[in-house]
Amino acid sequence: MSPSDFLIIPFDDWVNFLVRDWLVPNFRPIFRAMQVPISMVLKGLDDFFAFVPMVVTTLVFALLAFKYAGRGMVIFTILGFAFIDMIGLWPETMTTLSMILTSVLFCTIIGVPVGILAARSDLTWKIARPVLDIMQTIPSFVYLVPIVMLFGVGMAPGIIATIIFALSPIIRLTNLGIRNVRTDLIEASTAFGSTPMQMLFELQLPLAMRTILAGLNQTLMLALSMVVITALIGAGGLGLTVNTGLGRLDVGGATAGGVGIIILAIVLDRITQGLGEQKKVETTSLRQTLISLFKPGAPAPAHAGKAA
C-alpha cells in the first residue's frame, strides 16, 4: 500500500502543458529577442579572439598573470597556452574563452544589481534565496530541455543556460559583501547626510569589492564547467571537442579537450583570485619602483610605517 494507490499526479504532463502549450507558443518571440544582445557580444568577442594572434593573446594573459598572480603563473600561462596551441586546440579554446567571458559579463550585469537589491531589502533576499538555491542545485541536464524548447539550439542558448547556472554566486556574494559592511561605517555615512546612492558608491561597493570579486571568481568557475556541458545543445568550443571524443570513444581527443579546459581554468582562476586579493595587500607598484630606481633622492616606495 502506498499513496500512489489513491492518487497519481501527472506532474510531467503539467510541465509539458506549461512549457510546450503555454510558454512556447505565447512567449517564444520574447525568448528569441533575449538572445540578441548575447549573440552580439559573443560574436564580437569570438571574432576578436580569432583575429588577435595567439602570441599576443598569450602575452596579454601572461601580463595579467604577472600583475595579479605572480611569476609562477606567468610561466604556467605561457607554457600552457603554447601547449594548447601545439595540440591544435587554440581556436576551440578561444571560442570557449569568448563564451565564458560573455556569460560572466551578463552574470555581472544581472548579478551585481540583483545582489545590491537583495542586500538592501530583506524581502528581496527572502524571494531571491530559494530561487538561487534552485538555480544552483537543479541538474544542468534538466533545464537544457526547456532551454532548447524556448531558445532553440546553438551558442546563444548554451550561454543562457550557462548564465542561469553561474549567476548564483555573484548575487550571493554581492549581497553578502554589502551586508557585511560594518554598521558603524554605515551609521557614519548616514550621519553625514549621505543619500542611499552616495552610500552605495562611496562606501558599500568599494568595501564589498573583495567579496564581489570572490563571487566573480566563483561565477567564472561555474561558467567554465557549464560551457562544456552546453556542447550537448549545440554550443562549440572545447566542450564540443570533449563531446565528440566521447561520442566516438576517442580517448585522445576527449583528453586533449579536457586538458585545454583545465589549463584555461587554472589561468582564469588564479588571475581572478588575485584580482580580489589585490585590494588587501598594499604592494609597491612597478612604476614606483622604477621611479625610485632612476631618480636619486626620490622617496622610497615603502609606505609609511605604523605610527605610535
Binding site: D184, A191, F192
Partner: peptide, 29 residues
C-alpha cells in the same frame, strides 16, 4: 538629510573611519 549635512556631525566610539579612503578623504567625507 539636509539637517545632517548642514548642522549636525557625529564622532563615533570606534572611530568609524572609512578604511579605503585616505585621512584627507575621510575628513572631507
Amino acid at each position: 538629510r539636509e539637517i545632517r549635512r548642514q548642522k549636525i556631525a557625529m564622532v563615533f566610539q570606534h572611530f568609524a573611519l572609512f578604511p579605503h579612503r585616505t585621512i584627507a578623504e575621510n575628513a572631507a567625507y
